Simulated assay, not measured.
Amino acid sequence: MSTLKIAVILGSTRPGRNGKAVADWVVDRAGARTGAEYELVDLADWPLPLMDEPMPPSMGQYQGEHTKAWAAKVAEFDGYVFVTPEYNHSIPAVLKNAIDYAYAEWNDKAAAFVSYGTVGGIRAAEHLRSIASAVQLAHVHQQLAFSLFTDFENLSLFKPGAHHDAAATKLFEEIEAWSTAMKTLRT
């Protein structure tokens, strides 16, 4: 079986966002892995307008070139690690919009969640689990939750506690195992 490809999707585009440092930390930790190739997919590099497709994505009849390009990018991967802040007990609109743009490209793949916020972004991750289920992503149990108060200096400089390393290893093990299993299902 070919090497697994897993996207680390950075789900915030806000100026001054903390998510870039979190996503970079995830990619850095994943770099030591041998079971999969991890790639940062920053939604700031994918300026999708609010959903503008005339047909539901589940129909697979994409019209816009931006939609076709995004769907092709999503299709490249066997699994996804979503990095999300918590905005008003949920995920950023840009992340929801990016998920909504595709359908079959997400199906029968695995997902893991890394969140951050005042309470670790856990409500956003829980909401994202529900959204992931709707596009047929199988999500792993292990997640990472970073607190703005304990894992960031002055609420902005990312300095995660060392205890997150073991949790990250467990997350990588789970996303790789589930991605492998789901890849077998797709073939």
Rank of each mutant, 00 (worst) to 15 (best):
D100W: 00
V140N: 01
A110G: 02
S115K: 00
D100Y: 02
E86Q: 04
L48A: 12
A93H: 11
L137P: 14
S90P: 07
D108F: 04
Y103V: 05
A110Q: 02
P56H: 04
A102N: 12
T84Y: 02
A72W: 01
A134E: 15
A110C: 00
A132N: 06
P56K: 03
R129W: 05
D100V: 01
I91D: 04
A69W: 06
P85Q: 04
P92R: 06
H141Q: 08
E65G: 08
E126M: 05
G121N: 00
V74R: 05
L128H: 06
I99A: 05
T84N: 03
V135W: 11
A93W: 09
W46R: 04
W70H: 10
A44G: 13
A111N: 03
P85Y: 01
D78K: 09
Y87G: 09
A72F: 02
I91C: 12
L128N: 05
H141P: 00
F82L: 12
Y87E: 11
R129Q: 11
F113L: 12
E53N: 07
V83L: 11
E76D: 14
I131G: 09
I131A: 14
Q61E: 08
D52R: 12
V74C: 10
L95E: 02
S133P: 00
L95G: 02
A71R: 11
G120F: 01
A72C: 03
Q143C: 01
V74Y: 10
V135F: 14
G121I: 01
A124I: 08
L50Y: 11
H127Q: 10
V41H: 00
T84K: 04
Q142A: 15
L137G: 14
E76G: 06
N88L: 04
N88E: 06
V41L: 03
A134T: 10
K109Q: 10
K68F: 13
D52I: 08
V140I: 08
I122S: 05
V119R: 03
P57C: 12
A110D: 01
E53I: 09
G60T: 14
S90F: 06
P57F: 13
A71T: 13
K68L: 15
R129A: 08
G60V: 15
A98H: 13
I122E: 02
I122N: 04
D42K: 05
A102P: 11
T118I: 12
D108A: 05
A110Y: 03
L128E: 05
V74N: 07
Q136L: 15
V81N: 09
A71H: 07
K68V: 14
D42I: 06
A71G: 04
E65L: 12
F82Y: 14
Y103I: 07
